[in-house]
C-alpha cells in the first residue's frame, strides 16, 4: 500500500529554504518521479507561491477563522471545515499547493484545530510526495505539529547565525523526539572556496551535508523581479546541482 513521502525544508529566515525547495520541486517535476505532489507553505512569511507562480485564493488560517466564526453563530451552518480545507488547496502544473497562513481571531481554536489535524493527516495520504517549507522550524517544532517526515533539509546561508539556528532546530528535534528519520544540512549562496568552512560548520552542527548551492545570479535576478523559479532552464547550474542531490536522496529504485 502506498506510503506518502515527506521532504521538509527548514532554516533561518532568509537562508534560502524557499529557493531550495522551489529548485527541488523543479528537479522533481523534470524527473517525473512522483505522480501526486503536495507542496505546503508553512512559513508565516509565506512567499513560496511567488517562486512557484501560484495564485493563492485562501490560506488554512483564513479557513479556520471563517469556520470558527460560523460555529460561534446561532446555528452551525455553512460549509464543513473538511471541504473548506480541500477548497484551500490550489493546483499548479503537476503539483497541488497549500498555504498554512495563520489565524487572527481570539478564543479557543481547539475544535477546529483538531479537525484540521485530522483532515490534514487524511489529505496527505492522497499524495506520493509532500514538500513542506517551514519557517525557522522552531514554532512548528515546539508545538509538536510537524508532520512525521522522512527527510528534513535545513538550509544555511553564509552566516554564523544560520548555523546557530540549525543547531537549535536539531536540538529541538532530539528533545521532542520528532520523527525526522533523515536530517541534512544544505548550503545556499556559498562560494566554492568556502566549502571547507561550510563542512566544518556543518560538523559542529552535527548534521550530514547534503550539498551546496552556489550563488546564482540568474536566481537572484528572478527573485528580484518576482519571477517563478520553475521556469529556470535545465542548464541552470543550481538546477543541475539539485538534480544531482535529488538522485542521492531519491534513487531511481525508490521512485514510482
Amino acid at each position: 500500500m502506498s506510503d506518502t513521502r515527506f521532504i521538509s525544508f527548514s532554516g533561518k529566515g532568509g537562508s534560502g529554504k524557499t529557493t531550495t525547495m522551489s529548485l527541488f520541486l523543479s528537479a522533481i517535476l523534470r524527473r517525473n518521479i512522483f505522480k501526486e505532489i503536495l507542496v505546503i507553505d508553512a512559513d508565516p512569511d509565506a512567499n513560496l507561491s511567488e517562486t512557484l507562480n501560484i495564485h493563492v485564493e485562501t490560506t488554512l488560517g483564513e479557513v479556520l477563522d471563517k469556520r470558527k466564526k460560523e460555529l460561534e453563530g446561532p446555528a452551525a451552518a455553512g460549509t464543513k471545515l473538511r471541504f473548506l480545507i480541500w477548497d484551500s488547496i490550489g493546483h499548479g502544473n503537476g503539483f497541488d499547493f497549500l498555504v498554512m497562513g495563520h489565524t487572527t481571531g481570539t478564543g479557543c481554536y481547539c475544535s477546529v484545530n483538531s479537525v484540521l489535524n485530522e483532515v490534514l493527516v487524511e489529505t496527505v495520504t492522497m499524495y506520493d510526495l509532500v514538500l513542506i517549507d517551514f519557517d525557522a522550524g522552531i514554532e512548528h517544532f515546539s508545538r509538536r505539529s510537524g508532520n512525521p517526515s522522512d527527510t528534513l533539509i535545513i538550509t544555511c546561508d553564509p552566516s554564523r547565525l544560520s548555523f546557530d539556528t540549525a543547531k537549535r532546530i536539531k536540538r529541538l528535534i532530539e528533545e521532542l523526539a520528532l520523527p525526522y528519520e533523515r536530517q541534512f544540512l544544505m548550503g545556499c549562496r556559498f562560494d566554492q572556496n568556502q566549502k571547507a568552512l561550510f563542512n566544518g560548520l556543518a560538523e559542529e552542527v552535527g548534521l550530514e551535508v547534503l550539498g551546496m548551492i552556489a550563488y546564482d545570479a540568474e536566481i537572484a535576478t528572478k527573485n528580484l523581479l518576482g519571477e517563478d523559479l520553475l521556469s529556470l532552464t535545465p542548464d541552470n547550474p543550481s538546477i543541475k546541482t539539485v538534480q544531482g542531490i535529488l538522485k542521492q536522496l531519491v534513487p531511481d529504485s525508490e521512485t514510482i
Binding site: 501526486e36 503536495l38 480541500w86 488547496i89 489529505t123 495520504t125 492522497m126 499524495y127
Partner: peptide, 12 residues
Amino acid sequence: VLPKMRELKPRL
C-alpha cells in the same frame, strides 16, 4: 480507494 484530490474536488 485512494482518491486524487485534484479530481475529487470538482465533484464536490
